[in-house]
């Protein structure tokens, strides 16, 4: 028992020395672009056709620090300004929706058939954390997770060229034809925190620069359970590509 306790004590004492060994750290600036979608992980049957998808202005700017565990492995974290967003146009059939028409009012329930255009703009502060492996002098891969804090959220759209049956498919039919459309803005309903997995790779071009590709896959639905405008969950699934710039020479 005592030996274990002593070994543990030695570890605790030497750990800061290990950690603070300056030459084990690398500091990098990261600048990239997020491309992806805030979407259901599986396209539900209510979505009949994705008629369009386009990116928004969604950069990623920040700082990554990695700690060298040994010659092959490293671990890291960072902090980044992370914009995620997209625009999309879909054709839908019987999307079951429950929305509030007036603040503090009741929920209107119905089934929507028709076209929907949505623009998503989410601004996060993201902290990634990962473990990485150096494949060779130039390539490394990494995997881990991330946590994001949303400081600005926008989820706006409109429905048109269709109709809503309320409250059931045999109920009242409200048509949206020609120029008629109903707009919505669910920005306020989006969750403040997002978490997920990340998977990435980096190619070292020279002593300063590198190119990275990273997939961030959110595991938390962006809307809380009490949000019922659609029955399916939406997740942030974004791929970022960009440059890294090493602040210190190795």
């Amino acid at each position: 028992m005592k030996t274990i306790k002593y070994r543990f004590l030695i570890l605790i004492i030497t750990l800061p020395a290990l950690l603070w060994a300056e030459d084990r750290y690398e500091h990098k600036l990261v600048a990239g672009y997020n491309l992806g979608a805030t979407a259901p992980s599986n396209i539900p049957e209510e979505i009949r056709k994705i008629e369009g998808w386009w990116p928004q202005f969604t950069p990623r700017l920040g700082y990554n620090a990695t700690y060298k565990i040994n010659n092959n492995w490293f671990a890291g974290s960072g902090i980044m300004l992370d914009y995620k967003g997209m625009g999309t146009r879909v054709r839908a059939k019987y999307i079951h929706t429950r929305v509030r028409l007036e603040k503090g009012g009741e929920e209107l329930e119905g089934y929507f058939v028709g076209k929907n255009e949505t623009r998503v703009k989410l601004a996060y502060v993201t902290v990634p954390f990962f473990v990485g492996y150096n494949i060779n002098r130039n390539w490394s891969i990494r995997a881990g997770g991330y946590a994001s804090y949303a400081f600005s959220t926008s989820f706006k759209g409109s429905v048109y060229d269709g109709y809503l049956r309320t409250p059931t498919p045999t109920g009242k039919k409200i048509e949206f034809t020609g120029d008629d459309e109903a707009t919505f803005d669910f920005g306020d309903d989006i969750r403040t925190f997002d978490f997920g997995f990340n998977l990435g790779a980096e190619y070292r071009v020279n002593e300063r620069f590198g190119i990275f590709g990273n997939l961030d896959w959110g595991i938390r639905p962006i809307f809380p359970k009490k949000f019922r405008a659609m029955d399916f969950n939406m997740y942030n699934i974004y791929f970022s590509v960009g440059l890294t710039y090493q602040l210190q020479k190795t």
Binding site: N42, I43, E45, R48, I50, R165, T170
Partner: peptide
């Protein structure tokens, strides 16, 4: 790596069969 990422996107991009009509007018 690229292949698995692409597969993820492709698999989740499949449009399902048309749901049966629910209206009875």
């Amino acid at each position: 790596l690229i292949a698995s990422v692409c597969t993820l996107f492709v698999v989740s991009s499949c449009i399902k069969d048309e749901p049966l009509n629910r209206e009875a007018d």
